[in-house]
């Protein structure tokens, strides 16, 4: 092994790494929040929507879940302008991420809603709850609690997926790494540092999700 590790030029570029990491955090967080909304709407449509809408949701979920993200983002950035839809790279990245995670969230939340026992709903009706109340307290909240682990690991996976967005010239953490690599040629060192930062981010997001879980789902379990 006669290789001289040279981390100095990588670490000297730490402001750019931080800037890139910040974009990655924003993209991830934005896509998680919006993806959750898409997932909720998708799951509700799948559950209670008219048949054509259910088919549409099915097609969306299957198309996204069975094709790679990198193809989806190429399609959105390079293909969609042909029909007049044009986004800047970071916005295109966010749109692609939302569309992607929305499909997974739809599927996860749908499974959660289906896991709710009919008897619970009937109990809610018997108690004289309104439809919206039943949906919110009897269906949605327990469903979300059931699928929370699946949802959050999907979100972590999403955060890691953002590393692909530099292919459309978005300026995330991986793009900062690519730029520094192009200037320093210290490839291994650059990508090792970047990987460590992603690892820290995934630990950070995990901690955030546990904190949210404690706050949002701390009411006693009833079996």
């Amino acid at each position: 092994m006669n290789y001289d590790f040279n981390f100095a030029p990588v670490l000297a570029n730490y402001p750019r790494l931080l800037e890139g990491a910040w974009v990655t955090i924003q993209l991830s967080f934005g896509a998680m929040v919006a993806g959750l909304v898409v997932g909720l709407m998708g799951a509700i449509a799948k559950n209670a929507g008219p048949r054509p809408l259910r088919w549409l949701v099915d097609a969306y979920v299957e198309a996204i879940r069975n094709t790679p993200f990198i193809i989806q983002i190429f399609f959105i950035f390079f293909g969609l302008p042909a029909i007049g839809l044009r986004f800047s790279p970071n916005v295109a990245a966010l749109v692609a991420l939302i569309i992607n995670v929305g499909a997974y969230a739809t599927e996860i939340i749908r499974a959660g809603i289906e896991s709710i026992n009919r008897g619970q709903v009937e109990a809610g009706i018997a108690l004289g709850m309104k439809r919206a109340q039943i949906f919110r307290y009897v269906i949605l909240r327990p469903a979300l609690r059931t699928v929370y682990p699946a949802l959050t690991s999907q979100f972590i996976f999403l955060m890691l997926t953002t590393s692909v967005v530099s292919v459309i010239s978005a300026s995330d953490l991986a793009a900062a790494g690519n730029d520094i690599n192009a200037e320093t040629f210290a490839s291994f060192e650059v990508y090792l540092v970047i990987t460590v930062i992603y690892f820290i981010l995934s630990i950070g997001f995990s901690a955030l999700f546990s904190a949210i879980e404690r706050v949002a789902f701390s009411y006693p379990l009833s079996r």
């Binding site: 950035f77 390079f78 293909g79 302008p81 044009r86 790279p89 292919v167 459309i168 010239s169």
Partner: peptide, 11 residues
Amino acid sequence: ASAVQALISGQ
């Protein structure tokens, strides 16, 4: 090629 593609796409 990606840069050219971006120009042609109007990006």
